[in-house]
Design a protein around this nucleic acid. Structure first.
Length: 906
RNA sequence: GGGCGGCUAGCUCAGUUGGUCAGAGCGCCUGUCUUACAAGCAGGAGGCCGCCGGUUCGAAUCCGGCGCCGCCCACCA
C-alpha cells in the first residue's frame, strides 16, 4: 500500500486518495482551529533559540478584517513561519486597540437608538456599557485572524486597556511628566465640534472647498471717512476680533500707526498692530486678528499681548460673548453677520475663493481652532533620540525612501496634544487641588499624599483621557509586561521587525520610536518594513463609503486563504500598492489546485507501484537514492534536487529581504513549470517503463516533501494538509509542517551536469513541439527525425532519452554528428538542427516558418555585427561581453546558413 | 509652497549594483478532454520600457529638463 491515512489530519479522505479538485473550505477551517488549539505558535520566554519577535499593529477593537490587514498579515505570516521553520523562537504578539473615539462613538450610537445618551448614563455606567460591548463583539477580528492562519501566539493576546497595559500608560505618563516632557496649558488646539474633544494635528485632514473671501470694512476710530478693508474667509469670527494687523513695512498703512479701528456690530475698539506675519500681497494687506479662533492670530496675539475672546462654544455655536448672535451655529452666524454688515454697507466685496479646511478624521466636521486647556507632550526632545536611532542604524526603515519622510516629520515635529474630552480611554493620572494646581501621580493615594505634603486637598481627578495613540505608542513593550522587567521583555524586546502601512508611520511608528526610546532606552524595532495600500481593480483606495471594499473572509471562503494571500503578496512589489483583482485570486486557487493534483499524482503512482511503506528517518537531509539496477541516481532526480538547491537559496534570500512578491514568483514558477511540467512528466515515463521504481518513488516523495516545506510560509494550509498525508509514516516528524525545517540550500545537491542535460532535453522537446504546432502535424502521430549537432552532449541526450522524446514530443530521433543536411521539415536551435520526416503537403507551412525565422535572425545578426564593428565597444567593453557577443554572432550566422540551406532544399 | 512615488505587452505589474532585461500573471489566438490537474496540456501573437536632452563603447536602468497620474507635509487670512 502507499501511504497511510494521515491519522492527525482533520480531513477524512484517506492519505493520498485525493479528490480530483482541491476544495480549500474542506480543510482550512479545521487546520486553523487546530493550529490555535495545539498552541503551535506559542513563543518560549526562556529559550536557547535566538528570538524573532514582532508585535501586530493592533487593529481597532471595533474593526473587522479588511484587505489591508489581510495583506499585512500575509507578509508577516510568511516571515514568521519562515523564521520559525529556521529554528527561531518566534513571537508574533496579537491584540487590539481600544480606539477611543471610534469605540465611544459606536456605543453612543447604540445608546441613541435606545433613546438615551452617555450623559444621562453617567461616566461609570457608560464605561460599563463599552466594556460589555467589547466583551461581546470585540473578538471578531482575532477570530478572523485565526481563520486565515495568522501564526500568532494567542496566549499572549493583549488589549490596550488591559490592566497591565493601563499600568504601563500611567507609568509612562508619570515618568514623562517628571522629566518635564508633559505639560498642561491653555493653547490653540484643533477642536472637533462633532465629537466635542480636542484632537491632534495628525487627526485633522485637509479638504479643499469652494468658499468665499469677504472684504469687510472696519471704520478707523476717530474719523468719519477713514476706514480699512480686511479680507476673511470666516466673517463670523469677527465677533472675536481684538486687533487688525498690517505688515510693518507696508507703506500704504503708515498712517495707521498708533490708530485703532472700530469693530462693526460689536463696537469694540481694535488696535492696529504691525507684524511680519501679514502678507502685504494678500487681499488688502490688512488682516483681522482673532486670537481665539485662528492659530496665526493666536500667535500674533501672544506677541502683542492681545485679549483672547472666544466666541464659539464646544459645538461651534456662538456663545454669550457673541451678543445677539448667541446660540447660532457658526454657519448660520456667518450668514447673519454678512447680512448685517451688508445692511450697514460694510461689505466691500465678495470673491469666490478656494481654500483648504481642516476636517476631523473621526467626525468629518470642520475642525475649529480653539484655545483650550489641554495636556501636551513636548515632542522635540523625544524626536531627537528617535531620529538618532534611525541615523545610527539601530532601526532600519525599509524601503529606504520612507526614511526621508520619517526624518522630515520628526525634524519638524510639534508638541502633541494628548488629552481628549472623552470617557473611553486611559484617564489622565492627574488630580486637581483646591488651589487650582494639580499633581500627577501613579495612584490616588500617592496624589493625596503629595497634596497633603503641600498642605492641600485633592478636589477631583482629571476627567480627560489620553489620545489612543499614546497607549499604542507603548505597545511593543507594554504588551510584554513593562515596566516590570519580565522574561518576555528580556527575550523579545526590542522587537525584530515591524510591518505596517505608511498611513500610520507618523501616528504610530513615530510615537513608538519616541516613547519606546524614552521609556526603555532602546528603539523598539530593529527593522521597520513599510508596505503599500490595497486598492480595488480600478486602483481606487478601498473604503466603506465608496462601497468598494472586498471582504477577505468572503474571498477566503470562495477561493481559499492560500489563494488570497498568494494573490496579495504576489501582486505587490516591495513597498508598492496592491491592485487586487478577483481573477488574480482565482488564478492562485488554480495554483493550489495544481499543487493538490501534483500530490494526487504522487499518491496514485505510489499506489500503482505497489510500493511498500517507506519511513524515511530524516526527510530534511534526504539525498536522492541510486537506482537499484544501475547504481546511479536517475537524471530527473538529480535534476530536481539540484533545482531544489537553487530554489531554496533564492527563497531564503527573498524572504529575508522582504521580497515577498519575488518569493511568490520563484516558488510558483518552480513548482508549476519545473516540478510539474518536467519533473512529474519525466517521472511518469520512468514509472511507466518500470525501472528504478523504489528509489524513484522515494526520491519523488522526498522532492515533493521538500517542495511543500518551501511553499509552506506562503501557502500554509494546503501544504500542511498535504504534508501531513505524505509524512504520516515518518517517525519522529514534527507535528506540523510549520515546525519542520525550512529547506536550506545544500551545495551537495547542486548538479550542473544534470541541469545541462535536462536543459538540452527541454530544448529538443520544445523544438519538436514547435515544429509540430507550426506545421499543424496531427497531434497523435509519431514522427521520426534526426538531430544534427556538433555538440556531444546534445547527441547523447537525443540518443539517451528516447522515451522522454517520444512521450513528451511525439518524436523518435536519431542523433548525427555534424551539420544538417538540406531539405525537409527542419527546426534550428543554437546547438542543433532537428529534421522531422513529415508529409509533403506541409512544406508550404515550413517555408513560411523558416522565412519568418530568417528575418528575425538577420536582424539580430545585423545588430551584433554593427556593435562589433564599433572599435570603442571592442576596446572598452569587458572582454567577456565582447566575446559572448562574438559567439552569439557566430551562432546567428551558422543558423542563418543552415536555414537558407533548408529553404533551398524545400 | 516643499517633498515622495508612478509612467515597461490589451490589463495589473516584476525588472536588486548600467552589457542574455525586454519579462511574469491574466487576457487574446491556434491546437488538444494524453487517467494528477480542461481551474488542465502544447504552441503562438503582442512593447522605439511617458517625452526631450546628456553621461557612456553601451541606458528601461545613471544625470538634467518636460509632460501627465497619485500621495504626503505646510498656520496662504
Amino acid at each position: 500500500m502507499p501511504l497511510r491515512p494521515a491519522a492527525r489530519s482533520p480531513v477524512s479522505t484517506p492519505a493520498m486518495r485525493l479528490d480530483k479538485a482541491y476544495d480549500p473550505s474542506a480543510i482550512e477551517p479545521a487546520w486553523a482551529e487546530r493550529w490555535v488549539s495545539e498552541g503551535l505558535f506559542r513563543a518560549e520566554a526562556a529559550s536557547a533559540k535566538p528570538a524573532f519577535s514582532l508585535v501586530i499593529p493592533p487593529p481597532n477593537v471595533t474593526g473587522a478584517l479588511h484587505m489591508g490587514h489581510m495583506f499585512e498579515t500575509s507578509q508577516v505570516d510568511i516571515t514568521m513561519r519562515w523564521q520559525r521553520m529556521k529554528g527561531r523562537n518566534v513571537l508574533w504578539l496579537p491584540g487590539t486597540d481600544h480606539a477611543g473615539i471610534a469605540t465611544q462613538m459606536l456605543v453612543e450610537r447604540q445608546l441613541a437608538k435606545e433613546g438615551t445618551d452617555r450623559r444621562s448614563l453617567g461616566r461609570e455606567q457608560f464605561l460599563e456599557r463599552v466594556w460589555a460591548w467589547k466583551e461581546t463583539y470585540g473578538g471578531k477580528i482575532a477570530g478572523q485572524l485565526k481563520r486565515v492562519g495568522a501564526s500568532c501566539d494567542w496566549s499572549r493576546e493583549r488589549f490596550t486597556m488591559d490592566p497591565g497595559l493601563s499600568r504601563a500608560v500611567t507609568e509612562c505618563f508619570v515618568r514623562l511628566y517628571e522629566r518635564g516632557l508633559i505639560y498642561r496649558g491653555e493653547y490653540m488646539v484643533n477642536w472637533d465640534p462633532g465629537t466635542q474633544t480636542a484632537i491632534s494635528d495628525l487627526e485633522v485632514e485637509y479638504e479643499t472647498r469652494q468658499g468665499h473671501l469677504w472684504h469687510l470694512r472696519y471704520p478707523v476710530s476717530g474719523s468719519d471717512v477713514d476706514s480699512v478693508v480686511v479680507a476673511t474667509t470666516r466673517p463670523e469670527t469677527m465677533l472675536g476680533d481684538t486687533a487688525v494687523a498690517v505688515h510693518p513695512d507696508d507703506p500704504r498703512y503708515k498712517h495707521l500707526r498708533g490708530r485703532s479701528v472700530t469693530l462693526p456690530l460689536v463696537g469694540r475698539s481694535l488696535p492696529v498692530i504691525r507684524d511680519a506675519f501679514v502678507d502685504p500681497d494678500f487681499g488688502t494687506g490688512i488682516v483681522k486678528v482673532t486670537p481665539a479662533h485662528d492659530p496665526n492670530d493666536f500667535a500674533a496675539g501672544q506677541r502683542h499681548g492681545l485679549e483672547v475672546i472666544p466666541v464659539l462654544d464646544d459645538r461651534a455655536r456662538i456663545n454669550a460673548r457673541g451678543g445677539r448672535y448667541e446660540g447660532l451655529d457658526r454657519y448660520e452666524a456667518r450668514e447673519r453677520v454678512v447680512r448685517d454688515l451688508r445692511a450697514l454697507g460694510l461689505i466691500e466685496r465678495v470673491e469666490d475663493y478656494t481654500n483648504s479646511i481642516g476636517v476631523s478624521q473621526r467626525s468629518g466636521e470642520a475642525v475649529e481652532p480653539m484655545v483650550s486647556t489641554q495636556w501636551f507632550v513636548r515632542a522635540k526632545p523625544l524626536a531627537v533620540a528617535a531620529i538618532r536611532a534611525v541615523e545610527n542604524g539601530s532601526t532600519a526603515i525599509l524601503p529606504e525612501q520612507w526614511e526621508r519622510n520619517y526624518f522630515e516629520w520628526m525634524r519638524n515635529i510639534r508638541d502633541w496634544c494628548i488629552s481628549r474630552q472623552l470617557w473611553w480611554g486611559h484617564q489622565i493620572p492627574a488630580w486637581h487641588l483646591e488651589d487650582g494646581t494639580f499633581v500627577v501621580a501613579r495612584t490616588e493615594e500617592e496624589a493625596r499624599r503629595e497634596a497633603a505634603s503641600r498642605g492641600l486637598a485633592v478636589t477631583r481627578r482629571e476627567t480627560d483621557v489620553l489620545d489612543t495613540w499614546f497607549s499604542s505608542g507603548l505597545w511593543p513593550f507594554s504588551t510584554m509586561g513593562w515596566p516590570d522587567e519580565t522574561e518576555d521583555l528580556k527575550a523579545f524586546y526590542p522587537t525584530s521587525l515591524l510591518n505596517t502601512g505608511f498611513d500610520i508611520l507618523f501616528f504610530w511608528v513615530a510615537r513608538m520610536m519616541m516613547l519606546g526610546i524614552a521609556m526603555t532606552g532602546e528603539a523598539p524595532f530593529a527593522k521597520v518594513f513599510i508596505h503599500g495600500l490595497v486598492r480595488d481593480a480600478g486602483k481606487q483606495k478601498m473604503s466603506k463609503t465608496k462601497g468598494n471594499v472586498v471582504d477577505p473572509i468572503e474571498m477566503t471562503n470562495r477561493y481559499g486563504t492560500d489563494a488570497v494571500r498568494f494573490a496579495l503578496v504576489a501582486s505587490a512589489g516591495q513597498g508598492s500598492d496592491v491592485v487586487l483583482k478577483e481573477e488574480r485570486i482565482a488564478g492562485y486557487r488554480t495554483f493550489a489546485n495544481k499543487i493538490w493534483n501534483a500530490l494526487r499524482f504522487v499518491g496514485i503512482s505510489l499506489e500503482k507501484a505497489g510500493a511498500d511503506v517507506w519511513t524515511p528517518q530524516d526527510l530534511a537531509s534526504f539525498r536522492p537514492l541510486p537506482d537499484e539496477a544501475t547504481g546511479e541516481v536517475s537524471l530527473a532526480d538529480r535534476w530536481i534536487f539540484s533545482r531544489l538547491n537553487s530554489v531554496s537559496a533564492e527563497a531564503n534570500r527573498q524572504i529575508d529581504e522582504f521580497r515577498y512578491h519575488e518569493v511568490a514568483g520563484t516558488l510558483y514558477h518552480f513548482f508549476w513549470h519545473e516540478f510539474c511540467d518536467w519533473y512529474i512528466e519525466l517521472k511518469k515515463i520512468s514509472f511507466a517503463d518500470g525501472t528504478g521504481l523504489t528509489a524513484g518513488w522515494k526520491n519523488m516523495l522526498a522532492a515533493t516533501e521538500r517542495s511543500l516545506r518551501l511553499l509552506h510560509p506562503v501557502m500554509p494550509f494546503i501544504t500542511e494538509d498535504l504534508w501531513q498525508r505524505i509524512s504520516a509514516n515518518t517517525p519522529g516528524r514534527p507535528k506540523s509542517i510549520a515546525l519542520a525545517a525550512y529547506p536550506e540550500p545544500d551545495p551537495g545537491d547542486s548538479d550542473p551536469e544534470a541541469e545541462r542535460q535536462i536543459g538540452i532535453l527541454r530544448e529538443l522537446v520544445t523544438a519538436a513541439r514547435n515544429l509540430r504546432a507550426e506545421l499543424s502535424l496531427p497531434p497523435r502521430d509519431l514522427f521520426r527525425g534526426t538531430v544534427f549537432s556538433e555538440v556531444r552532449a546534445v547527441r547523447e541526450v537525443a540518443n539517451g532519452q528516447p522515451e522522454a522524446l517520444r512521450r513528451l514530443a511525439g518524436v523518435e530521433l536519431a542523433a548525427k554528428e555534424g551539420k544538417a543536411e538540406a531539405g525537409g521539415a527542419m527546426g534550428h536551435a543554437t546547438e542543433f538542427d532537428l529534421a522531422l520526416a513529415i508529409p509533403e503537403n506541409r512544406m508550404a507551412a515550413m517555408r513560411a516558418k523558416l522565412e519568418k525565422q530568417l528575418g528575425q535572425l538577420e536582424r539580430a545578426a545585423q545588430g551584433a555585427r554593427s556593435r562589433l564593428r564599433n572599435e570603442d565597444f571592442v576596446s572598452k567593453a569587458p572582454a567577456l561581453v565582447v566575446e559572448s557577443l562574438r559567439g552569439k554572432l557566430g551562432d546567428y550566422d551558422s543558423r542563418l546558413e543552415r536555414i537558407r540551406k533548408t529553404l533551398a532544399g524545400l
